[in-house]
Computed example of a mutant assay.
Amino acid sequence: MGFPGTWMTESESVVYRVVPKCACSSIGQIMFYSDHGRFYDGDIHDSTTGLHKWAQDESQKLIETNVKAHKSFAFTCVRNPYTRILSSFFDKICGIQRNGKRYRGNLVPMLVQKYGVQVGGDDGKQDFDQIASFRRFLLFARDTIRFKKPMEPDIHWSAMSGHISTFIVNGGRYDHIFFTEKFDDGMQVVLNNIKTRHKINLKKIPKFNESEGHGPKRLHPVEDYFDDLSHHLMWEIYKQISAW
């Protein structure tokens, strides 16, 4: 199986296991900058040079050799599951993606038809009941994870433990795991433990949120989106996953 979702600097100073919706754009750009002294011009997920990625065939042997020998400092980043799945909803379900289309083609029309989810019209800019639509999406997310219907769970709302564990199961070991909510503190630990070609001052590094602007602006506090049933669905989704 190898090490899917793993990125490594070209200098092999550090190894990072990507967890979707957990500051991966900012982390990738910091890694890129640490080697090249500049940020990648565009979404770091689109880069094909300047950063080793498991998705790039030529990088796989280098990553595998490094990780299995634990040659470099290895880390990942996690996030509060409530804010993570809410972010996934606004970005991937309500938002128009970088290619100008809806995420995963017929996914959104299916959600509209089968679950009654509203997404703000064709352009995502019309008013709609965000709270009601999110709760219906949450039911869909539960169905994909518990029953794998009407589709397999998507990486953006599947459990973080599933992403993180593949690195360990296949022979890797983490040196550090930190929270998105304490990003600067956690990332500074990483930087303190590696040697970079270019010095990084986190206070001067912009936060790269590539999903920002894809979808409608969240109108309510996070807690307003979760009623008693939503809390139970979150437990059903992620508690059960961790027990499998």
Rank of each mutant, 00 (worst) to 15 (best):
G2M: 06
W7L: 14
S13R: 11
R17T: 04
V18K: 14
C22T: 01
A23H: 03
G28A: 02
I30F: 12
I30L: 12
M31N: 12
M31R: 02
D35M: 03
H36G: 11
R38H: 02
D41V: 03
G42S: 09
I44W: 11
I44Y: 14
I44C: 12
T48W: 08
T48C: 09
T49N: 14
W54A: 10
A55I: 02
T65Y: 02
T65K: 04
N66H: 02
V67F: 09
K68C: 00
K68V: 02
A69R: 08
C77Q: 02
C77W: 00
C77S: 05
P81I: 00
Y82S: 02
I85G: 02
I85W: 04
S87E: 01
F90A: 09
F90N: 10
I93V: 13
C94P: 03
C94N: 12
C94S: 04
I96T: 13
Q97H: 10
N99D: 15
K101L: 12
Y103Q: 02
Y103L: 03
N106Y: 04
L111C: 08
V112F: 08
D122G: 12
G124W: 01
F128L: 09
F128V: 08
I131M: 08
F137G: 10
F140N: 03
R142S: 08
D143P: 09
T144F: 08
I145P: 14
K148V: 00
K148I: 03
M151E: 01
E152K: 15
P153G: 06
P153Y: 00
I155D: 12
I155K: 11
H156Y: 01
M160L: 06
S165M: 12
F167Q: 07
G171M: 00
Y174P: 05
D175Q: 06
F178T: 05
F179L: 11
T180R: 06
E181P: 06
K182A: 05
D184I: 03
D185T: 02
V189L: 13
V190I: 01
K195N: 15
H198E: 08
K203I: 01
E210R: 11
E210A: 15
G215A: 10
G215M: 01
P216L: 01
P216R: 06
K217H: 13
R218I: 02
L219M: 14
L219C: 11
V222G: 04
V222C: 01
E223H: 13
E223R: 14
D224E: 13
Y225F: 14
D228P: 04
S230M: 00
I237T: 10
K239Y: 11
Q240V: 07
Q240D: 05
I241K: 15
